[in-house]
Amino acid sequence: MDSSELRRIANRIRRRDLQAVFEAGAGHIGGEMSVTDLLTALYFHTMSVDPDAPLDPHRDRLVLSKGHTALALYITLAEKGFIAKDDISSFLKHNSALNGHPNRVKVPGVETNTGPLGHGLPIGVGMAKAAQLNGDTWRTFVITGDGEMQEGSNWEAIMAAAQFKLDNLTLIIDHNRLQQGARLADTNNVAPLAPKLAAFGWAVEEIDGHDMDQICRALSPETITQGQPKCIVAHTNKGQGISFMSDNVAWHHKVPSEEQYKQAMAELEEAAQ
């Protein structure tokens, strides 16, 4: 699929996400807008997954460790055919399978239940280790938030992955410079991330996390360094695509007013042209 088509899908996911947050009156819209291009590239360019066989042992695995942006994953899974597009309107409703954090027991395509930050990468290491032991070729991808990288568990996993030479593991850090309450720089600044990962023995690449060509290239198997896990530091914007949300910490989990909703939708529709 070419990158203009990928951009069209990403734009559609953003619009559906905005609508669902507005209708449900909840969601983590900032981090959803920042991760959308990464999810789109993974599901529609890079990963080998089959909605009709969600548990195929040879599928590629994606762990959305920043589970608070579940809605973006749900919509991507719906676009891909894992769940019905109509299901999205049940987001957060009574008895819905789609709660605020992804649940593998209820939602086909979800690999593991996330929500508490700092869980995805250790699980990703285990997945990649299993593939290595089996001699399988499937790949494991983990997406973390940048604030999430403050959790020590990530660094334990980073050391293990390097030690185990897991070149079938790719960590993508959604580096939008913002966490829940403030900028990382004003909280606990883990940046710059790339030299830290490199010092821990990973192959590291920095990209513009909203440039489809760059994302796809960084995810492609040709860019893997043998014997080293790979980290993609994806420079993104929280609230990407919506001017008044972009790079604005207020929009971690704020819900747009009707007027803001209309403006945001108009901006996304214009970008779709």
């Binding site: 930050l117 700092g118 604030g147 999430e148 403050q150 959790e151 020590g152 966490q179 829940q180 309450g181 990382l184 909280t187 606990n188 883990v190």
Partner: peptide
């Protein structure tokens, strides 16, 4: 004292 997202710490 905000330690960031790091509860054990």
């Amino acid at each position: 004292i905000n330690v960031g997202i790091a509860e054990q710490n």
